[in-house]
Design a binder for these strands. Structure first.
Length: 951
RNA sequence: AGGACUAUAGCUCAGUUGGUUAGAGCGCUACCUUGACAUGGUAGAGGUCGGCGAUUCGAAUUCGCCUAGUCCUACCA
């Protein structure tokens, strides 16, 4: 073994071995345990959030595999419709200046597939580097033909049941991407905007009660006024009673529109008069439906002003009666330019009453980043309300559990108020909607044109054309848990592994994905009793990985970290290139450069996969966001090095030696019995923490045991045995056997979190430990043997540690060199102390670095000494020539003061009658015991201090 | 506006059913190249647990209010 831990030397080769030997695939034996990976974007790359989730998933699946389960971790990617199409469009524009329309649909699709081939390996490469034990033999992609068939089947059966329908509705329209998007893809942002108060003149000489021949409406979107089809006032508003039913003449356009009464108009807000534009505002749309108002769409799909509006009736049918005139100067004008013009024209007419500053929230597309436009279009919708019902029940009755539980509330609040889901997208990259239209626009839903003819009995004289649109990516992702396993085909895999056990994902996609997967699975999959099948039993929600100052990592902020850079390291130059290259907002580059140079002046050194995984596990307290801390990563790399060197020590002392592999007789030292005892407790704790999704506690438990107990104490305690020429072969064999066996167990315990280093070490010591097997991956997870718990040994080691630490404390405080071997006297010891001293003299001499230990009997004269207490027993280090009187007095004072504080605190407690009367007996007794101990210690130290001070 | 979460050492975080001398890592101080490891060892320093109040014999832990921050939902003519 190398002297220092070199992760790069071991990681890739072990992964290759595991994969080649197909260890990741289900074993086919034992109880099933399954998980599906949240499918990442096929052309994307993994960020820290993925690394975090993948570490959790891999730890769970490796743990379950070692528990003997038949484990499946289903892997795959999704096609990420909008994101991928955008990238390829941008690439195309940059390379050839062409748009997708220049190429045409088929040729453009070829370009996307090329891009997928080119960049699609990224993710899977990263996953291999992260050590993820996914079942590569069953890798899936949402655009694979088989998956495509599942998507079509789902769509068609939902349509046939009436749960999918098509309609002309107002939807969220992204004018940049020119597609509809769902509510969830809209992000609200606070913005300082303006409110314009516009005068609308009353027609036919009508006046208001106040005598005005106009009314004033307030609006944040003047440019939509071309599409106004009414002005609403509240029926109860005394100011406008007399004009309800009258008309106004819409400025700039000249159209007469009615003044209607509707509760939507709030008397307290604005002027009490609201312009109603049903084709461009969700509230107005509802008003329009209630009041049967016509709708006029005045915007193009790129959100420019149309040359003439499109008129519709409130039911969505064409209305050719209504005047849709738009003044020529506005034709094809961009929406915000049009806004300025409308305001200017109103001002010129004297119709602009005032402008107010207005704080408001504006909807932006989460992908395109431009303001979303409510747009009247034909779209496909899924009846989410109906689909949601059973999923709510499943969470209510505990069939599906969220960890942490508070996310259930979030889930409920959303599901109980769910809106129909717009599932069509005006994109090319995705699953094309399996719907066909005849010349009259009548729709036929089937997998293909010929299937449609057959299903609907259509003759060849009828021409059919397929719907141009594709499905929302989340529609296909919603099928992920079961379509990856072959649904609609009923097969063994589905039967064995569905429902899956655990889903690990982030809270940000609970609605996008988790809820949709629940809806789809419960509607489309039924168990043998016909009961809706849930997709997973537990949803483990992780927090976000943020940067060191708590900010979200994002490309625009330039604070993104690639998990592989943490593993393999990266130079500052390369990191800068990564962060500032190919930016959407190049103006940020300078700021990012400065920040990166400051934080990573020397780039990032390599830490290895195991250290990264251990860090992520150690930070994974459930549901909490993680602020990434590079120092912590360094600490855990050092931990790996520690393990590595401990293993070297073990190997050096056991290789070629008799370690009792064949069950030879051994004699176990106190330390041997103690470490074995401790190990049992650790085995219980770690398994419990993993089962409870507390990987942070599991990691902490392992860290503490390995570093502080095994390395810190046990390895040191093994030296006096192994290096003692007087030790018997039985004793040496006992210690060697314990050394190597405990290490072997530690490796198995730690393997789910740190797969590589544990495999490497396990391989090199397995024979010494008397075990065989091809890989640690396939070994069983350690299980505690309660018969090995030895409380007497633990108590005796505590005593031993007390004496050693006592001497070391004197040494440290008094500045005595560790090289100086000390003489120690033991005073006021009990019979038990005497016995323990006799039994452990060898350990004490070595670990406390002593020259001599002398047991003082009652009446024996003790020299002036520095004192440490172990219980009632005094550990004395003679001061002569070594220790300064004043230093010792001040050391004692420090101790005495500490005890004084504690004694005062407990005295207060015990002096409180209510405490003594009400607290449980055991608690009171414990306090009494404590204070007695503190008092006797304090007395001894005071006595000692007086003696020394008197010198 | 409604809801959720968070606030513990200089920093990043633990603290399970109320009873601990409130812990870990990093950082800090002093000393140490002792035959696994300086990516190390030994000994230390450092916290009135965001604030106020309540319940209790006893609160970091339970409850209420407040402050700060993060997030979600809704509304904004």
């Amino acid at each position: 073994m190398d002297k220092t831990y070199q992760p790069a030397n071991i990681e890739t080769s072990w992964y290759q071995t595991w994969e080649d030997k197909n260890y990741f695939a289900p074993s086919g034996e034992g109880e099933a345990y399954s998980m599906v990976i949240p499918p990442p974007n096929v052309t994307g790359s993994l960020h820290m959030g993925h690394a975090f989730q993948h570490t959790i998933m891999d730890t769970l699946v490796r743990y379950q595999r070692m528990q003997g389960k038949n484990t499946l971790w289903q892997v795959g990617t999704d096609h990420a419709g909008i994101a991928t199409q955008m990238i390829v469009e941008r690439k195309l524009a940059a390379e050839t200046g062409q748009t997708k329309h220049d190429l045409g649909r088929d040729a453009f699709m070829d370009k996307i597939w090329e891009w997928k081939e080119e960049s699609g390996g990224n993710i899977t490469r990263q996953m291999r580097r992260l050590g993820n034990s996914v079942d590569w033999s069953n890798e899936r992609f949402t655009m694979d033909p088989k998956f495509q068939a599942s998507v079509e089947e789902a769509f068609i059966s939902l349509y046939d049941e009436g749960l999918i329908y098509r309609g002309k509705r107002l939807v969220n329209w992204d004018p940049k991407l020119q597609t509809a998007i769902s509510d969830l893809e809209v992000e609200s942002k606070e913005i300082k905007g303006k409110m314009w108060y516009l005068r609308y003149p009353l027609a036919d000489g009508v006046t208001t009660d106040a005598g005005d021949d106009y009314i004033v409406v307030a609006t944040t979107r003047p440019e939509t006024m071309f599409g106004d089809t009414a002005v609403a006032v509240n029926a109860a508003d005394p100011r406008f009673q007399s004009i309800i039913g009258k008309e106004i003449i819409l400025p700039l356009v000249g159209r007469r529109i009615p003044i209607i009464a509707d509760d939507h108009a709030n008397m307290e807000k604005g002027t009490g008069c609201v312009k109603i534009t049903p084709a461009h505002d969700f509230n107005d749309y509802e008003v329009g439906k209630r009041r049967k108002l016509p709708m006029i769409n005045v915007l193009t799909f790129t959100a420019d002003i149309r040359e003439i509006g499109q008129g519709f009736n409130s039911d969505g049918t064409l209305n050719s009666e209504i005047n849709c005139h738009i003044p020529e100067k506005y034709h094809n004008m961009e929406r915000f330019a049009a806004r300025r013009e409308v305001v200017a024209d109103f001002e010129a007419l004297g119709f602009l009453v005032k402008i107010e500053e207005n704080n408001m929230t504006i909807p932006y597309g989460d992908r395109g980043g431009v303001v979303i436009e409510p747009m009247l279009t034909d779209q496909w919708f899924a009846d989410a309300k109906t689909l949601a019902g059973p999923t709510i029940e499943a969470v209510e009755n505990g069939d599906i559990k969220f960890v942490p539980k508070q996310y259930e509330n979030m889930f409920f609040s959303w599901m109980r108020d769910i809106q129909d889901w717009c599932i069509s997208r005006q994109l090319w990259w995705g699953h094309r909607i399996p719907a066909f239209y005849d010349a009259q626009g009548k729709v036929y839903v089937a997998t293909s044109e010929s299937a449609a003819r057959e299903k609907y009995n259509l003759g060849t004289e009828i021409t059919l054309t397929q719907d141009n649109d594709v499905l929302d990516t989340w529609f296909s992702s919603g099928l992920w848990s079961f379509a990856t396993m072959g649904w609609p085909e009923q097969n063994d895999k589905l039967e064995t592994f569905h429902p899956t056990d655990t889903l690990v994902t982030g809270f940000d996609i609970i609605f996008f994905w988790v809820a949709r997967m629940m809806m789809m699975s419960m509607h489309l999959c039924k168990d043998k009793q016909g009961k809706p099948q849930i997709p997973f039993k537990t949803v483990y929600i992780t927090g976000l990985v943020r940067d060191e100052s708590g900010e979200k990592m994002s490309k625009t902020k330039g604070n993104v970290l690639d998990p592989l850079d943490m593993i393999d390291g990266i130079s500052l130059e390369d990191l800068l290139a990564k962060r500032t290259g190919n930016m959407m907002q190049p103006q940020m580059a300078e700021k990012i450069r400065k920040r990166t140079e400051k934080e990573y002046a020397d780039g990032i050194p390599a830490h290895g996969t195991d250290a990264l995984r251990f860090t992520l596990a150690a930070l994974a307290s459930t549901g909490r966001d993680i602020n990434w801390d590079m120092k912590r990563l360094e600490g855990y790399r050092n931990f790996c090095n520690k393990i590595w060197n401990a293993a070297r020590y073990v190997e050096m002392n056991t290789a070629g030696e008799d370690c009792g592999q064949n069950g030879e007789e051994v004699e176990l030292s106190l330390a041997d019995r103690w470490i074995s005892s401790k190990l049992q407790q650790i085995e219980i704790d770690v398994a419990k923490h993993i089962e409870e999704y507390r990987l942070d506690l599991a990691a902490q438990t392992l860290y503490d045991f390995i570093w502080n107990e095994y390395c810190g104490w046990y390895l040191e305690l093994s030296k006096p045995v192994l290096w003692n020429e007087e030790a018997t072969e039985l004793q040496k064999r006992g210690t060697r056997r314990t050394l190597v066996r405990v290490l072997e167990v530690i490796m198995r315990l730690t393997h789910p979190i740190m797969p590589f280093i544990t495999e490497e070490i396990w391989q090199s010591i397995k024979t010494l430990a008397g075990v065989s097997g091809d890989s640690i991956m396939l070994q069983s997870y350690p299980k505690a043997d309660l018969s090995k718990i030895d409380l007497a040994a633990e108590a005796e080691i505590d005593w031993l540690k007390g004496v050693i630490t006592g001497v070391r404390n004197i040494r440290g405080e008094m500045g005595i060199s560790p090289a100086k071997e000390l003489t120690v006297l033991i005073n006021n010891g009990s019979d038990e102390d005497k016995q323990r001293l006799a039994a452990n003299r060898n350990f004490l001499m070595k670990l406390a670095s002593l020259e001599q230990i002398t047991w003082l009997n009652p009446g024996d004269e003790a020299p002036m000494s520095s004192t440490q207490l172990v219980g009632k027993m005094e550990v004395l280090v003679p001061m002569a020539g070594l220790i300064d009187k004043d230093a010792e007095v001040s050391r004692l004072n420090k101790e005495i003061e500490k005890l004084e504080k504690e004694i005062g605190r407990i005295e207060g407690k015990l002096g409180n009658q209510k405490f003594v009367a009400n607290a449980p007996e055991a608690v009171v007794a414990k306090e009494r015991e404590k204070i007695a101990g503190f008092k006797s210690s304090q007395e001894k130290l005071i006595e000692q201090r007086e003696k020394i001070a008197a010198l």
